[in-house]
Amino acid sequence: MSSEAVHADRAHPSYVRIYLALLVLLAISLLGPMFGHPIVTLVTAFGIAIVKATMVAAYFMHLNIEERYVWYILFVMLGFVLVMFAGIAPDVMLPAGQNWLHLPITPPAPPVHH
């Protein structure tokens, strides 16, 4: 069955329930930092952000019933972002470098006026 046929035939899920679940997740992400533990904050903030974004994409954007190749298009773009991250991060996060040579700088001679 094509994606369009699936789109046309599907019964809509309860969007209000999904919305309420998203609000509960938002509340948890706000409560996380109150524990004062960085790992808990990391999981409740960013882990839940990934879950929330996936729910929005799957149910509100209907990616759960979309053609598979649309997922591939979006994931290829995410892959490009990861490539950018991997390419730039060493320069940004290791600014002291590993194999740099510190050469003495000879200042240029002052201009001679005749």
Binding site: V70, I73, L74, V76, M77, L78, F80, V81, L82, M84, F85, I88, A89, V92, M93
Partner: peptide
């Protein structure tokens, strides 16, 4: 979807560089 694919690179670039 193609528009959003390009948006992923735009926002992904900003968010990725911010994170590092």
């Amino acid at each position: 979807w193609w528009v959003l694919a390009s948006e992923i690179v735009i926002f992904g670039g900003l968010i990725g560089s911010y994170v590092m």
